[in-house]
Design a binder for these strands. Structure first.
Length: 927
RNA sequence: GCGGAUGUGGCGAAAUUGGUAGACGCACUAGACUUAGGAUCUAGCGCCGCGAGGCAUGGGGGUUCGAGUCCCUCCAUCCGCACCA
């Protein structure tokens, strides 16, 4: 075997792993399980760039390590294959999205395979595969057939709800349901027609149809979820988004708000991510209070977190969308109110946000009665109050709340102080300090006393109570799109019914075009005979025409990997009981309030209904940072074809231009390649410095248009997959964002060749010595084994690469080629550079792959020092180093005596005033 | 505005969690070896200073024998949420 020929080595072992199915994971109750999951990619047309595999490399290292530690490892990969880009490409070209998707998947797989991952490809899933989405549809139906019982704090079968209705109506029920549900008894239930009963049940189902205000994006022709809208524009494409009323499928995720919040305490996730989910769920504890409207039967209910400030309440504000406004507006105010509401309604979300600072509102002419003081409170409508949060109405306390304060100032409404000594001349004061000064039942009380007393008052009067409010809203679960899972629902007399299990999947039908119809129906309306005939019926019924949103397929996929080809269940009980949950999940932070929240929701649901074992699906989660591009620039002299080197650019008038990073090495431009790059540059001239053209650089997102994309295939071709893997880890901490810089890869490449040379004499012949290692060599290898193990466990993979480098440097310096040392070293290397490790392992004479080897144990006795050289500082300053034969980490008397003797020797017998020995290393001597 | 994070050489970064700051790598400098390589090896490489020595972990202050690490404060950058009552 000659020099390190990574190309043939890597091909050979990738083939070997595939032939032997080395990483096929099967249930084995004798072994502990380890399930490592990567966020599966959406296969875009651009292919992978070097940033994509970062997290996969990290999880692969952990998996390969865990195998050597005796774990049965499940490490699967698949594709989140439904999505907008394929559909938009289809709209433009007429090409079926399934075809482009398959092409892209093939390319991704090829690229992934080149990196040498230990994926079990036999468990691959694709969310667009009917055998997969059959189960996405099945789960949808389970949700449809369930309701949430707050009493039992779990989801239950809808039949149990029907049984309850038949016995008691909806009395004595604490269930999650629509707000407009009214009470009925058993007789009333029985008197309902079938349609009425179904309509009522729909208000309780965990997936339900409702009239909702949605984020409608006219450009994309679809509805977007809140997290797909950024500042009033679609996250994808940046098109304007408007509010629109529509009948939509929704998921009752709000039923799980509290459990989603509580669950965060039990999982090992990064704090920022947990915080994001907490904010998204947005729990606030306060009180609900109902106020009478002067002269009307109707009432207004408000939610407040500061019931203690109720005596500072001087007016009421309603969201313009509330229907009650029309009813209570006086005739004098009618015109003003209607104008205001009209304007507010037509304001897009976007406009509403841009004008945040601008105070606007209108008086309705009506008054509410203050429940504590009996005073009359003017009722206003204003768009600073959101219809979607709380009750859409607020009690305005301008003394304590800045928004109310601004509003009161603008419209000249009274502002009252609440606590003693409160300064409200310039702005509101949200203090909770001091005693309440307003006359009434709360006078003289502190914040806590007042809060409790006010709530008891509300409860006594039956006009309010303590209340917990959540910001999270039910998730809209439908898109007016083609390329997604069909919703397994058909309509009979306008009532939705689930498709029978045995008729799943409802396969995505063919259509002539992937656009909405002329009258605005979703693309599926174009399909011919898209109907469903229930068993035993002669009639066909129309199937729901919207498709599921992008997050549907990814909300349960980790279960499918456990048992990917099961045709009878989404996962077998056996596989699920064994693999249970994900031990390590690696992925980006961008899914914080989308995929990661929905997955937890579905998992809790599946758990409630007995289809999952664990309450939380992802025990430990790590966010890998993105690898950014490092773009290069040249400076063109304005109006010419002359380019000025970086440090001379200020002498001319220039404009920067992106240049392909492939034409640049260490910021030096290859001017010949540059001229050949594009036809318009063939006559380019250069103003050089020191005979070179130096480019500027900037760190940006990797993208084609910035010419900064680095393809892993190119790196593998030049340096090999092992080098790529190690370099990506060496780049810095996994969680951090960092720019890709191909230049530094040499260091890792050199390391691997050095590693190879340890096993080869004269760079050529394989040769290891059978001699036993000496103490220094033992020390090196045991220290390395320990450090690498610790680093992998804590995912400090950048330092473990350094550790291996140091070991190789030291062993090279010692010219150590002893088998006992090198065998252990190969195993510690194998998670990082598996191909080379396999090759060397084979050369060492092993017939089984290195993944079957077990990770070496380290021997502490080689690591504890018997002789140390420790600094001694005298009068606070380090004077010299002194060696003595003790371990200063022990605090025993003997050590101290020895240390003292050493000090005496060093201070030439002068007895020091004070000798300080701390339980570590440094001794401070005060003379 | 609220919440979270991060600040260490020319660059990516280490620092056994309070104990010799800058390991390891890149870049750079000088040299060696050569069948001239995208090869290998040796030495140097935070700043000031000829030197002894002094100064250095965003700035300032504090606790401690000792602080990159703990506390207070200010500054900068990034991310998330944003009229949430």
């Amino acid at each position: 075997m000659a020099a390190y020929d990574f190309q043939s080595i890597e091909k050979k072992w990738q083939q070997y792993w595939a032939d032997k199915s080395s990483f096929k994971a099967t249930v084995d109750n004798k072994k502990p399980k380890f399930y490592a999951l990567d966020m599966f990619p959406y296969p875009s047309g651009a292919g992978l760039h070097v940033g994509h595999p970062l997290g996969y490399i990290a999880s692969d290292i952990v998996c390969r390590f865990k195998r050597t530690k005796g774990y049965n490892v499940l490490h699967p990969m698949g594709f989140d294959a439904f999505g907008l880009p394929a559909e938009q490409y289809a709209i433009q070209t007429g090409q079926h999205p399934a075809i482009t998707t398959q092409e892209n998947i093939a390319r991704y797989k090829e690229q992934l395979k080149n990196i040498g991952f230990s994926f079990d490809w036999s468990k691959e899933v694709q969310t667009c595969d009917p055998n997969y989405y059959k189960w996405t549809q099945w789960i949808f139906i389970q949700l449809f057939n369930s309701w949430y019982d707050h009493e039992a704090n779990k989801a239950r079968d809808i039949d149990e709800l029907i049984a309850h209705f038949e016995k008691n109506g909806n009395a004595g029920l604490n269930a999650a349901c629509d707000e407009d549900v009214v009470g009925f008894d058993a007789n009333e239930w029985k008197s309902f027609s079938e349609i009425q009963q179904h309509e009522m049940l729909l208000k309780y189902r965990l997936t339900y149809l409702s009239e909702t205000t949605v984020n409608w994006c006219p450009e994309l022709g679809t509805v977007l979820s809140n997290d797909e809208v950024k500042d009033g524009y679609s996250e994808r494409g940046g098109f304007p988004v408007v509010r629109k009323q529509m009948s939509q499928w929704s998921m009752r995720i709000t039923a799980y708000a509290e459990r989603l919040l509580e669950g965060l305490d039990s999982i090992d996730w990064p704090d920022p991510l947990k915080e994001m989910q907490r904010n998204w769920i947005g729990k606030s504890i306060g009180a609900e209070m109902t106020l009478k409207i002067d002269g009307y039967e109707d009432t207004i209910t408000v939610f407040t977190t500061r019931i203690d400030t109720v005596y500072g309440l001087t007016f009421m504000v309603l969201a313009p969308e509330l229907d009650i406004i029309q009813k209570i507006t006086t005739s004098e105010q009618k015109e003003a109110v209607e104008t205001y509401i009209e304007v507010a309604k037509n304001k897009s979300e976007r406009d509403r946000m841009t004008h945040v600072k601008k105070v606007s509102g209108v008086f309705t002419g009506a008054y509410a009665i203050h429940p504590f003081s009996g005073e009359k409170l003017p009722i206003w409508a204003a768009d600073y109050v959101l219809a979607g949060y709380g009750t859409g109405a607020v009690m305005a306390v301008p003394g304590g709340d800045q928004r109310d304060y601004d509003f009161a100032k603008h419209f000249d409404l009274p502002i009252l102080p609440i606590y003693e000594g409160m300064d409200i001349t310039e702005e509101a004061n949200p203090t909770k300090e001091g005693m309440i000064i307003n006359p009434g039942i709360l006078e003289g009380l502190t914040y806590e006393e007042a809060t409790n007393k006010a709530i008891s008052f509300l409860e006594e009067k039956g006009i309010g109570s303590k209340k917990i409010n959540y910001r999270i809203r039910d998730a809209i679960f439908a898109r007016q799109r083609y390329w997604g899972e069909p919703v397994p629902i058909y309509f009979k007399e306008g009532i939705p019914y689930p498709v029978a299990d045995e008729d799943l999947p409802i396969v995505l039908p063919e259509v002539d075009k992937y656009l909405p119809t002329a009258d605005g129906d979703p693309p599926l309306a174009r399909a011919e005979n898209f109907t469903y005939t229930p068993k035993g019926s002669n009639e066909s019924y129309p199937i729901e025409q919207s498709t599921m949103p992008g997050w549907a397929g990814s909300s349960w996929y980790w279960y499918r990997y456990m048992d990917a080809s099961n045709e009878n269940a989404f996962v077998s009980d056996e596989a699920r009981d064994y693999w249970k949950d994900v031990d390590l999940y690696i992925g980006g932070t961008e899914h914080a309030t989308g995929h990661l929240l929905y997955s937890r929701f579905w998992n809790k649901f599946l758990c409630d209904r007995g289809y999952a074992n664990e309450e939380e699906p992802f025990k430990k989660l790590v966010n890998q940072g993105m690898i950014q591009g490092r773009s290069n620039f040249v400076y063109r002299k304005k109006g010419t074809n002359e380019f000025v080197s970086l440090n001379l650019k200020d002498q001319f008038e220039t404009s920067p231009m992106h240049v392909d990073v492939g034409l640049v090495d260490n910021d030096v431009l290859d001017t010949d390649s540059f001229k050949a790059w594009r036809p318009d540059l063939k006559d380019a001239e250069f103003i050089l410095e020191d005979g070179k053209y130096i480019c500027d650089y900037e760190v940006e997102k990797m993208s084609k248009s910035k010419y900064n994309v680095v393809n892993p295939d190119d790196i593998i071709e030049r340096y090999g997959a092992d080098t790529l893997r190690m370099y990506e880890m060496f780049l810095g901490p996994l969680e951090q964002f960092k720019p890709w810089n191909t230049h530094g890869i040499d260091g890792v490449y050199k390391f691997l060749r050095k590693f190879w040379r340890l096993f080869h004499e004269n760079e050529e012949a394989f040769s290891v010595s059978e001699e036993s290692p000496n103490k220094d060599e033992q020390k090196i290898i045991h220290r390395t084994i320990k450090k690498v193990e610790e680093d992998i466990n804590s995912l400090s993979l950048n330092t473990s690469v350094s550790t291996l480098m140091i070991a190789v440097n030291e062993l090279t310096a010692l010219k150590c080629n002893k088998r006992e040392v090198l065998e252990k070293l190969v195993i510690t290397l194998s998670p990082f550079a598996p191909h080379m490790a396999e090759e060397l392992w084979q050369l060492l004479g092993h017939s089984e792959g290195v993944s079957k080897a077990s990770y070496p144990a380290y021997d502490e006795s080689y690591l504890t020092e018997s002789t140390h050289e420790y600094p001694i500082s005298i009068n606070g300053k380090v004077r010299a180093k002194i060696a003595f034969a003790i371990d200063m980490s022990n605090e025993d008397i003997e050590s101290q005596v020895l240390a003292h003797e050493a000090v005496m020797k060093w201070t030439e017998g002068k007895p020091p005033k004070k000798v300080i020995i701390v339980p570590k290393r440094i001794i401070n001597v005060v003379l």
